[in-house]
């Protein structure tokens, strides 16, 4: 089955100058795990994910150790989030955009998600404009029959 047949046609996205605080609000409201970041022409030039935001708010060594178990509390995270809340997402987004094409098939997309450990992918046209999203759960839901 082609991606265009089962993608989620939700174009929720942020701009390069959208604040971190607003991006968190949007991720919460939209139920998406990450949001595409658009330039003025509407091209997807990055992705801001929950993981990017957590990484931005925690000390670098936490990412290296892959654990927050040694932190006394999450106050530090909260304080840091407030500090960076007004900063643009362009400072924290991933600039490498792993994306699907509308004519890719479901197996290609599943393979890409597993290999890259991604929860969702933006679907882009030839001009890198956003057409929709494919979420892992959409694939699972479809495969369930």
């Amino acid at each position: 089955m082609k991606v265009r047949e089962f993608m989620r046609r939700d174009l929720t996205s942020v701009d390069l100058d959208t604040t971190v605080s607003h991006a968190i609000y949007l991720i919460h409201e939209s139920g998406l795990a990450s949001l595409p970041v658009l330039d003025e022409e509407g091209r997807v030039v990055g992705v801001i994910s929950e993981r990017d935001l957590i990484r931005a708010a925690l000390p670098g060594y936490v990412d290296m150790l892959q654990s927050v178990a040694f932190l006394p509390s999450l106050d530090q995270l909260s304080r840091k989030l407030r500090e960076i809340g007004g900063k643009p997402v362009s400072e924290f987004m991933s600039r490498e955009v792993v994306a699907a094409r509308p004519d890719d098939n479901d197996l290609q997309v599943a393979d890409l998600m597993i290999r890259r450990g991604l929860k969702q992918l933006p679907v882009l046209d030839d001009q890198k404009r956003l057409l929709g999203m494919v979420r892992r759960i959409d694939l699972l839901h479809r495969l369930r029959g």
Partner: peptide, 16 residues
Amino acid sequence: ILQDLLARGVTANFVW
């Protein structure tokens, strides 16, 4: 509203 629209195949681009 969003879920209903997506289920009907409409592309949605809303401001929250």
